[in-house]
C-alpha cells in the first residue's frame, strides 16, 4: 500500500468551542421555552397556589404566617421546581435532540450545565422575582423578604442542578414524575434547612453572612459535581432506551 498517495487522516475538528456550544444550547432552550409560554407560567401558578393553601388550610392569622411564611414559600418554591424538572430533558428526549447532544464533540457535562442554567433562568429566577409579592401576602417584613429572596436566589440554582441528576436518571421511565420526587426530595433537605434557617436567623437579628456563605458553598459544590453526575445518568438512560 502506498502511504504517500493518501492524505493522512486528520481528526475532524469541531467547528465551535465548548463555550460557544454552551451558549448555543442555552439560547436554544430559552427560545423553545418562549414559544410555549404556558409551560413557563405553570410552575409560577403552582407556586402561588401552594402558598395560598397554607392560610386556607392551616391558619390565616398574622402571627402564624409571620412565623412560618419563609418556610411556606421555600417549600412551595421547592415543589414547583420539582414539578418543572420533568420538562428539563423530556422534550429533547422525545424528539431526538438529546441523542445529538450526546454525540457532540463537546463534553456532555458542559452542555447539561447550559441546559440546567436555562432551566433555572426560566423557572427558578421567576420564582425569586415573584417572592416579594407573596412575601408581603404572608406578612413578612421587608428585611425578611429581602433575605428570603437572597436565599432563594442562591438556593434555586442548587435545586435545578440536583434536580437535573434526578431528571436524567428517570428519563423515559413510566412513572418518572413520582419517582423523580422520591429520589430528589431527600437531597433537597439541606438546601431547605439552610434556606429557611437563614431567614429565621435574620428575623432574630443574628448575622446571616455565615449562613449565606454556606449556601454559596452548596451552590459551588452542586455546580462542580452535579453536571458530571447528570451526564453519567443521561448516558445510562439513553443506552437504556
Amino acid at each position: 500500500m502506498n502511504a504517500e498517495s493518501r492524505p493522512a487522516l486528520k481528526p475532524v475538528e469541531s467547528a465551535i468551542g465548548p463555550v460557544q456550544a454552551m451558549v448555543a444550547v442555552f439560547m436554544r432552550d430559552v427560545r423553545v421555552a418562549f414559544r410555549q409560554r404556558q409551560d413557563l407560567l405553570n410552575p409560577l401558578l403552582f407556586f402561588i397556589m401552594v402558598v395560598t393553601l397554607f392560610p386556607l388550610g392551616v391558619s390565616p392569622e398574622v402571627a402564624f404566617l409571620k412565623q412560618s411564611g419563609a418556610g411556606i414559600l421555600w417549600v412551595a418554591a421547592l415543589l414547583s421546581v420539582l414539578l418543572s424538572l420533568d420538562h428539563l430533558f423530556r422534550h429533547d428526549f422525545d424528539d431526538g435532540t438529546l441523542e445529538q447532544l450526546i454525540l457532540q464533540p463537546q463534553p456532555l457535562f458542559l452542555l447539561i450545565l447550559a441546559k440546567t442554567l436555562a432551566h433555572w433562568i426560566l423557572t427558578g429566577l421567576p420564582l425569586v422575582l415573584l417572592t416579594p409579592v407573596l412575601g408581603i401576602m404572608v406578612h413578612l417584613d421587608g428585611n425578611s423578604v429581602a433575605i428570603l429572596c437572597l436565599t432563594l436566589l442562591i438556593g434555586t440554582p442548587v435545586l435545578s442542578l440536583i434536580g437535573a441528576i434526578g431528571a436524567a436518571l428517570t428519563l423515559g421511565l413510566r412513572s418518572a414524575g413520582v419517582l423523580l420526587s422520591l429520589l430528589i426530595i431527600p437531597l433537597y433537605i439541606p438546601v431547605l434547612i439552610f434556606g429557611t434557617g437563614t431567614v429565621a436567623a435574620a428575623a432574630e437579628g443574628a448575622p446571616v453572612a455565615g449562613y449565606l456563605a454556606l449556601m454559596g458553598a452548596f451552590l459551588v459544590l452542586a455546580l462542580t459535581l452535579a453536571p458530571f453526575a447528570a451526564a453519567a445518568a443521561l448516558r445510562i438512560s439513553m443506552s437504556n432506551s
Binding site: L187, P190, L225, A229, A233
Partner: peptide, 21 residues
C-alpha cells in the same frame, strides 16, 4: 448503573444532610 449513580450522589449528600440536620 443508574442505581450506582444515585447511591454515589446520596453518599456525597449523607454528610451534608447529617450536618445540616
Amino acid at each position: 448503573r443508574a442505581v450506582a449513580v444515585l447511591v454515589l450522589v446520596g453518599v456525597v449528600n449523607i454528610p451534608i444532610i447529617k450536618y445540616s440536620v
